[in-house]
Simulated scan of single mutants.
Amino acid sequence: MDRFSRGYVFTYVDFVGKVKSKEALVKSLNRLAESGRIVKLAKGKYYKSELSPFGELPPEQYQVVKDQLDRDGKAVGYLTGLSIYNKLGLTTQIGSVIQIGRQEVRSPFKRERYTISFVKQNTITKENIPLLQLLDLLRFIEKIPDTKIEKSIATSKQLVAELSDQQQEKIMRLALKYQPSTRALLGQCWQI
């Protein structure tokens, strides 16, 4: 377990080939969680917590939901919503809801202190994720807390201006699957 960094979420799979008995591993991990040496995030998911002057830090949101984002090295989902708006500096809020864009959506569920919810999405590839996140920003622009729409549009314009010609063509194709209001806002981002 020393090979895992603090905040890294690990599962039984990370020990395959290193232990002989899965049952013994499960019991051992649960004992470590009960003793406080590791934290149980959800069934079969654990992490070593990191301490700060303000107390115990939770793992990064990506770590909490990475099993919902990647399957066998292929992107099946991506972070969207508050976590992206915060990363872009549009809001200072960090919510207890982690929103994920996926092709097949499911009912929201809880994982420790987080509620994981899903937004229906198409055409998810590792290369498309930043473009889909930008389109989601435009799609939900009125729902971004703690910011003005003008600031969100200015940030969107800056992000569009930084796209390569190939990325600009791709985002226009991806936008065809979004609502007309999102496509209109994207068009406004080209008016600099």
Rank of each mutant, 00 (worst) to 15 (best):
D2E: 11
R3N: 09
F4T: 06
V9W: 03
V13A: 15
G17D: 07
A24H: 12
L25N: 02
L25W: 12
V26T: 14
K27N: 11
N30T: 05
N30M: 09
L32W: 09
R37F: 12
R37H: 13
K40N: 07
L41P: 00
Y46R: 00
S49H: 14
L57K: 13
P58G: 08
E60C: 12
E60F: 12
Q63A: 07
Q68Y: 14
D70V: 11
D70Q: 08
D70K: 09
D72W: 10
Y78C: 00
L82E: 14
K87N: 12
L88S: 02
L90N: 01
Q93H: 14
G95M: 02
I98S: 05
V105K: 06
K110V: 11
R111C: 13
R113Y: 12
Y114G: 01
I116L: 10
I116G: 12
S117N: 14
F118G: 01
Q121A: 13
Q121S: 15
I124R: 01
I124K: 02
P130Q: 09
L132S: 02
F140I: 04
E142A: 11
P145H: 08
T155M: 14
A161D: 02
Q166C: 02
Q166P: 02
Q168R: 15
L174N: 01
S181K: 15
T182W: 10
T182H: 03
A184K: 15
G187V: 07
